[in-house]
């Protein structure tokens, strides 16, 4: 028995022992069984661990990185079967262009939504002529209080054209249509403007699918008071609702 055990072909030894020693002492039988099962058990366990490590999520997480997906499958000529059109339908769009006049994306038409436009419905004079330092003088837009930067930095005439009430103006006196108002904002807020053009700032309306339609600056920010205001949340957290209204 010892001789057999020492031989290198262990499985073979079991085979021999099973046949040559049939009906042998059950005690030795169980010893052989014990060793073989121990051997099988350990192999099985290693196999089990191997199976686990290879099956679950693979040895490398890198394959699963979205960045790898982007690298492998990015495609600049995707043919979309969907479009954001159904979700921006009804919004009259104005193109935003770069310096080469290529259309980048669209913004909603602004003038359609201005309450009183064109301005010459009321105003016959150029804005420059209407400005007065008299504190008791009449104000056309008494409800507008400029709360944008400081009084020293901005006046009405910083953004509105002094020659033609229907236009905004840039620092170089170039007149800008109300539908291109973002150009006025971009003069100071160039960082925000870059983010907006890229897509990190501002809000895309309708859908994620092309064509892209983004809100322009004044769709979210009141140009006369651009900061967001504090208010109550529109809904409370689950736990809070249950605390306030226990059922």
């Amino acid at each position: 028995m010892d001789k057999i055990k020492n031989s290198s072909s262990y499985r073979h030894s079991l085979f021999i022992s099973r046949h040559s020693r049939a009906g042998g002492n059950p005690l030795e039988w169980s010893t052989v069984f014990g060793q073989v099962t121990a051997y099988a058990g350990i192999t099985g366990f290693i196999g089990f661990v191997l199976l686990l490590t290879t099956s679950c999520s693979g040895p490398s997480h890198n394959d699963h990185s979205p960045l790898v997906q982007i690298e492998k499958h990015s495609n600049s000529n995707i043919e979309y079967s969907v479009s954001s059109d159904p979700f921006t339908y009804g919004i009259e769009k104005v193109a935003v262009t770069n310096s080469e006049k290529d259309t980048l994306f669209f913004i909603p038409n602004r003038v359609n939504h201005l309450v009183s436009f064109p301005c010459n419905n009321c105003h016959t004079q150029a804005l420059g002529n209407m400005v007065s330092d008299d504190p008791s003088g009449k104000k056309a837009h008494w409800n507008i209080k400029l709360n944008h930067a400081t009084d020293e930095a901005l006046t009405c005439l910083t953004c509105h054209s002094s020659n033609d009430v229907e236009y905004l103006r840039l620092n170089n006196e170039k007149e800008i249509h109300f539908n291109q108002s973002q150009k006025v904002c971009a003069q100071c807020h160039s960082t925000q403007s870059n983010d907006w053009v890229g897509g990190a700032h501002g809000k895309i309306i309708g859908g994620w699918a092309p064509p892209r339609v983004s809100n322009t600056c004044v769709n979210c920010h009141d140009p006369h008071s651009p900061a967001f205001e504090t208010r109550w949340p529109s809904r409370l957290n689950t736990v809070k609702i249950q605390e306030l209204d226990p059922k």
Binding site: W29, T37, G41, F45
Partner: peptide, 14 residues
């Protein structure tokens, strides 16, 4: 019969 149930016993250990 030991040869019937012993393998089962050994498997059950692991």
């Amino acid at each position: 019969n030991k040869s019937v149930y012993l393998p089962g016993v050994l498997i059950s250990v692991f």
